[in-house]
């Protein structure tokens, strides 16, 4: 049972994700904290997302038609290494492909997206058995805007937007607990966007906050985990100051995401298939809503 419990940790690392609207760089929000008893981890994931609804600031949703197709494909690669048993360092980067299509026109662009480096510390350690006390991690992530922002877009349909455009500093807290063959993960984080200047505009983007909860079960203590997740993200508004004297303000956005996933552990390799849907719950504001499929493969390196 102890062996199965430890391995369950490894399966939940990618159960929670929140993604932003395509016009704003469409980024992921997973903390990538390693919660298993391993020394290191590398992973590769592929995501295919279609934007199917648009919600305005009042929550009115309109469904996209066959003449308004927009698909984001993302290939993400990363790794994490655990130092001194309680500190860990993680890095990741990705390549995005954005496709916009009508019945008569199509535009598609592939380019590198933003990159991230994270450091985490396990402040709530499991030094003795407790049925209720969780393991706790605090983490700090720094996002580097290696992708192309919407303020630098040059293509007519702006499919060359592959990143957010901002240096983003994020702090978060992850609580993780395994009880028998059930697991629960709770994550709360907040991000600060550093002001940036682009060609003819300076932008200050207000902070964002994200909350997520995930629960899963390994039936019969098998190497299969089935999980369900919920996440909520609030993105603050932006203030833009142009060189021609204009000042604009955008509105903030809110998105709720439901996820369903299946993971399979074969030795030290984990395979996962996850479905995310932003259209099931009400409450989203000022955003494009997507449905996506995430495939991921991870390999752990034991202590």
């Amino acid at each position: 049972m102890a062996y199965s419990s430890l391995k369950i940790f490894f399966l939940v690392a990618f159960s929670v994700n929140t993604y932003a609207a395509s016009c704003c760089g469409g980024g992921g929000g997973s903390s990538s904290v390693v919660t298993s008893e391993d020394r290191a981890k590398v992973y590769l994931s592929y995501r295919n997302a279609a934007y199917v609804y648009d919600v305005d600031t009042l929550g009115n949703a309109s469904k996209r038609t066959t003449d308004e197709e927009e698909v984001l494909e993302s290939m993400n690669i990363g790794g994490a290494y655990i130092f001194d048993n309680y500190f860990q360092l993680a890095m990741s980067t990705s390549v995005n492909k954005v496709t916009k299509r009508t019945s008569s026109k199509e535009e598609s662009t592939s380019d590198i997206s933003d990159s991230k480096i994270s450091i985490a510390y396990e402040f709530l350690q499991e030094k003795y058995y407790s049925r209720w006390k969780p393991r706790g991690f605090i983490y700090f992530s720094q996002l580097v805007p290696t992708g192309n922002s919407r303020y630098d877009a040059e293509k007519p349909l702006q499919t060359d937007i592959t990143g957010g455009g901002f240096h983003k500093s994020q702090v978060g807290l992850t609580l993780f607990k395994v009880i028998d063959n059930f697991d629960v993960t709770v994550d709360l984080n907040s991000a600060y966007y550093h002001s940036e200047s682009f060609n003819d505009v300076s932008v200050y983007r207000f902070p964002s906050t994200e909350f997520s909860i995930s629960a899963g079960v390994s039936p019969g203590y098998s190497p299969v985990r089935v999980g369900l997740s919920y996440s909520y993200k609030y993105d603050g508004h932006s203030e833009l100051e142009f060189t021609d004297g204009r000042i604009n303000h955008s509105k903030g956005s809110r998105v709720s995401t439901i996820g369903l996933g299946v993971n399979y552990l074969a030795g030290d390799i984990s395979y996962g298939v996850n479905y995310f849907d932003q259209t099931l719950l009400a409450g989203s504001r000022n955003s494009s809503l997507e449905k996506s499929l995430l495939l991921n493969i991870s390999k752990a390196f034991p202590l």
Binding site: N48, A49, A50, R64, E68, E69, V71, E290, L293
Partner: peptide, 10 residues
């Protein structure tokens, strides 16, 4: 194509 694209006619 993505399996999630809408089939709503314009």
């Amino acid at each position: 194509d993505s399996p999630f694209l809408s089939n709503e006619e314009p």
